Amino acid sequence: MAFAEFNFYSKSLQMDVQVSLILPEKVQGVGSAPAIRYGNFPVLYLLHGTSGDHTDWERWTSIERYAAKKGLAVVMPAAQLSAYTNMVHGERYFDYIAYELPEKISKLLPISCCREDTYLCGLSMGGYGALKIGLTLPENYAAIGTLSNGNHAYMAAGKVGSDMEKLFQSPLGEAMRNRFQFCWGWTPEHPVPVVGTDQDIFWLAQKNLDEKRKLPAIFAACGKEDHNYSMASDVRKYFEGLPGNPYRYQYQEEHGGHTWEFWDKWIQVFLDWLPMKGEESPHEY
């Protein structure tokens, strides 16, 4: 695999941005057995969580090795503490990652533009972002992966379990409260509506059903000791409660916390679950 850091000027954010990229190669060195393909590469947009950046997945997991086995390109952008939204007090990260970034990448690199070759995944805040982007633009993505996260709109509404209430008393909880204010203009004193808006993944999921749009498949996993477990369970109950499982929703859990050990394992499971075309022949790149 080829690994690179890509810097360019974002019109949406009006500043320079950094993106980490993994691209399959025709020939690999000792110890690697990459999948071999013709044509443009399928692509995974892989999103970081709270306190992370575009380097997290490459530094803390073996995503490059896992992607090589699939012949899969991986695009890892930085989104700061934006919750992958157009912030009320900040930059337009939703527009950047949902619209501008895929257009830029597909023009510069041999990336497939076909829906069936395009996937989203993220952990924690990035899992919420993957659902928010994928359910806003369901015609653009064949599948969504969401690890260790819930519906962040319900966090702002105070609809969280005891585990999250404890978290809000911690230094990380302070960062989350600040995020709600910067992203949505929400404060405890002025709780603007977030549930029932386009920040609410349940609202987006139902809107797609009402409009009879093409739906992506959704994979989810969370550790039983994760502080997001109660929220992840709420998301599970919502999607499993939809008649006929229209999103082909699959949920997995096991003992584990909000840790890279958990995400390193389950990103592999997600990649194996993806509805990817079979490996074919050498890509001339």
Rank of each mutant, 00 (worst) to 15 (best):
M176N: 06
L215H: 05
I133P: 01
G150M: 06
P193T: 02
Q169T: 05
V194W: 09
G185W: 10
S162R: 05
P191G: 03
R177T: 14
H152W: 10
H227G: 07
T187L: 05
G241H: 06
P216M: 12
L204R: 06
V194N: 03
G145W: 00
G145Y: 02
A142C: 02
N178A: 14
H227L: 15
S148L: 03
T197S: 15
R248G: 10
I133F: 03
A217F: 08
E253S: 07
H152N: 11
F202V: 01
W184H: 12
E211I: 05
G150S: 11
G134C: 00
Q169M: 07
E240C: 13
R179W: 12
Y141D: 02
A143I: 04
G173V: 05
Y251H: 08
K214W: 07
S233Q: 11
R248S: 11
A221V: 08
F219K: 01
E253N: 09
F202M: 12
K224E: 14
L172Y: 13
A217P: 03
V160H: 04
L215N: 05
F202S: 09
P191A: 01
S170L: 11
L215T: 03
H190Y: 09
K207S: 10
D200F: 01
Y154T: 09
V194P: 06
V160Y: 04
A156L: 03
G241K: 12
I144Q: 04
G158A: 06
F202C: 13
A220K: 08
N228S: 15
N245Q: 04
Q199W: 09
K166P: 08
P216Q: 13
S148M: 12
L215S: 03
N228V: 14
P191W: 02
N149L: 09
S148R: 02
Q206G: 00
P243Y: 09
T136R: 01
Y141S: 08
Y238H: 05
K207Q: 12
D198N: 15
L167S: 04
M231F: 05
